[in-house]
Design a protein around this nucleic acid. Structure first.
Lengths: 224, 224
DNA sequence: CGCATTCCTGACGGAACCCTGACGCGAACG
DNA sequence: CGTTCGCGTCAGGGTTCCGTCAGGAATGCG
């Protein structure tokens, strides 16, 4: 769930927003003051901030500046001011969007999706580690004792599948389907050859594998 | 200068926009039809698109979909429709912002700065360095041993994409989509030729590349 | 209109890789 | 005790993939 910080001094509106946003599967926290907002932003690390500029203690623009001082998280500004001057000021100060009140809820939700969509396209980096080697899936790299290991495309795809199911057994037919398509899902010999190649490149003692383990009669398993 | 494509069927408004935007140091091209917009987007590779939804030939939403089919460049939608329904539809279809007509020019410029700002900050470091050469993305320059290296436009675009994903592998199809559009995403030979040209200009020993590395069967990678 | 640069395609050599076959070994089983 | 089955190892032919060179087409510039 996406963590979302709502900064809104109007308690009724804040509660309403929180309810609707939670219904749309956001993990919502609400601040009613600027100081609390800055504190929550630093401590809770929300992934998006909805910021109403009208706050009781400090100016909303200062809250924005305070956040931008150390973070690039998306900030969507909400304000009663409609003149373009204020919009320009907020947008140039680092806001990712500006919605004037009164606003349509579905539009706010859509604009929220826009700013969060950008983060999602940057996939997280799942890295699988074992005692002997490290598999970096997004970078498509395998390192052993700090040095990069060169793998052929097929070797990599095989290791990738095992790494995605790290710790679990992957059936032979499933592996072969991914590697060679559904028609040749019974050529188990093919797997043995490539498993041997992977072990030769990655295992300290290829004859006694500790991480690329075969489950007799079933398939193979990558043990972290 | 930031390349900016304005898609606007109203010739007078299009010209006015172009003049103002050029005064703000954008490199502007104008399309008055949807087909021309799609063609220009693929051929000219603008960095931002301003898209009016009301077009004479094809629906503006289809233009948006056409661009989103192969590129993630920011698209700022301009429309006379004010109801939130249309806004939600466009935003969810991949638009980065939605400005309703009539609009204040300074607000449009501010929102333009927002979407371009994001592009500039996406790479962690806008300057990618290797042991042999330096790629300065904002200045569009490559230096090697202190001297600037002259690159052709295509060579630069290729290097730019690799630099944006520095350290990570970029798939062949992704590279070709960015370079030549979605239809020719299988001409891998084209990539080999240009990679060779880049290596000849940048690598100390082009026969044994250390930074412009090929990942067999997958794509290429720029190693810092 | 002529020149220069750049873009793109084709042909070719070489290297890397994929896949298959043959064989050895140990365990399970009758 | 012999057979069978599954697994691992080694090696080699065929093929794919990559890099290089070259040249015509297209484009931009003076």
């Amino acid at each position: 769930m996406t963590r979302l910080l709502v900064v809104e001094d109007d308690a009724a509106l804040g509660r309403a927003l929180a309810i609707i946003l939670r219904a749309h599967r956001y993990d919502v926290a609400v601040s009613t003051t600027g100081t609390d907002a800055l504190q929550k932003a630093a401590a809770w690390h929300p992934e998006v901030v909805i910021l109403d500029l009208g706050l009781p203690d400090i100016d909303g623009m200062e809250v924005l500046a305070g956040i931008r001082g150390w973070s690039q998280i998306p900030v969507l500004v909400l304000s009663a001011r409609q003149n373009s001057e204020d919009k320009v000021y907020a947008l140039d100060a680092g806001a990712d969007d500006y919605v004037a009140k009164p606003f349509a809820m579905d539009e706010l939700l859509a604009r929220l999706r826009v700013v969060t969509r950008r983060r999602e396209t940057t996939p997280e980096d799942p890295v699988v580690q074992t005692a002997a080697f490290t598999v970096d899936l997004p970078r498509r790299k395998v390192t052993r004792d700090g040095a990069e290991v060169r793998l052929t495309p097929t070797e990599w795809r095989l290791l990738e599948i095992l790494a995605r199911h790290a710790g679990k057994v992957v059936g032979r037919t499933e592996l072969l389907r991914e590697l060679r398509g559904p028609n040749l899902a019974h050529e188990t010999h093919y797997l043995r050859v490539y498993l041997a190649q992977l072990r030769a490149k990655l295992e300290p003692d290829p004859a006694a594998p500790r991480h690329l383990i075969t489950e007799p009669g079933v398939g193979y398993r990558l043990e972290p």
